[in-house]
């Protein structure tokens, strides 16, 4: 099984590397032979080769560098997503896949336009909050933290329903985007670390041919942490 950690070096702002580490850790524990490849600028990337692709959050400047580089691969990425390859983009990295990013200084960047939504960045107004989020994909709600300086408008295919915490824009009831198996969310935590049930579902998704039975998270500490956090955040 091959996993791609995209721009591992400069899109890794909020412990994002934890997502990749925990996923590989549990896949290995379940007997899966995992090959992790880390790629960055100036390296040839063949998107079709991977069973799972991950990209984390970056500073506003670094996000634009990633966007610029990914434009070289737009068609391949589109096909990869439409083929159903599991793809997780956390933090502001998922903004890259939308139509436009309006920067705080007034510049407008064309996104990859794989999805139809716009991002508006603010410079001084950051949102840093906890939250609880629900999705049909997972029987248990997700917990985590959001640290962003942007709002997103006009998402059609929402990933989460907001139970507690910030959404795509002030007072929005939705957070993130889902398109085939592309999951985009501002949720950090890291999300796969703090949500063992979601991680389990994700592992099943990656194992698309059902080669591995019993892809279960047996880490009682991860589950305890999750339960504690969920209880603390419930209103």
């Amino acid at each position: 099984m091959k996993i791609l950690h995209l721009y591992h070096d400069f899109m890794n702002l909020y412990g994002d590397i934890g997502n990749v580490l925990i996923l590989c850790h549990h896949l290995k524990k379940c007997g899966v032979n995992v090959i992790l490849e880390k790629k960055s600028l100036k390296e040839k990337i063949i998107f079709f080769e991977y069973d799972f692709i991950y990209i984390g959050s970056g500073t506003e400047r670094n996000q634009k560098i990633a966007l610029h580089d990914l434009k070289n691969y737009k068609e391949e990425i589109l096909k990869t997503i439409e083929r159903g390859t599991p793809f997780l983009a956390t933090g502001n990295s998922f903004e890259i896949f939308g139509s436009k990013i309006h920067s705080a200084s007034g510049e407008i960047f064309d996104g990859l336009s794989i999805l139809k939504f716009d991002t508006i960045e603010h410079n001084d107004k950051r949102i840093a909050e906890n939250g609880i989020y629900e999705t049909e994909f997972c029987r248990k709600p997700l917990v985590g933290f959001i640290n962003k300086c942007s709002e997103i408008r006009d998402i059609d295919n929402h990933l989460f329903k907001v139970k507690v915490g910030p959404g795509d824009f002030p007072n929005s009831s939705f957070e993130g985007v889902r398109h085939f198996n592309f999951f985009g969310t501002h949720l950090i935590g890291p999300i796969l670390v703090r949500n063992p049930y979601f991680l389990e579902k994700f592992m099943e998704l990656i194992d698309k041919n059902n080669n591995f039975k019993n892809l279960k998270i047996k880490d009682m500490y991860a589950i305890k942490s999750y339960e504690l956090t969920l209880n603390n955040l419930k209103i």
Binding site: G18, E129, N130, N147, I188, G189, R194, T229, N232
Partner: peptide
């Protein structure tokens, strides 16, 4: 400020 802290720094 928070009833639950951000712990993403554990992974730094």
């Amino acid at each position: 400020r928070y009833n639950q802290n951000d712990i993403s720094w554990f992974w730094d």
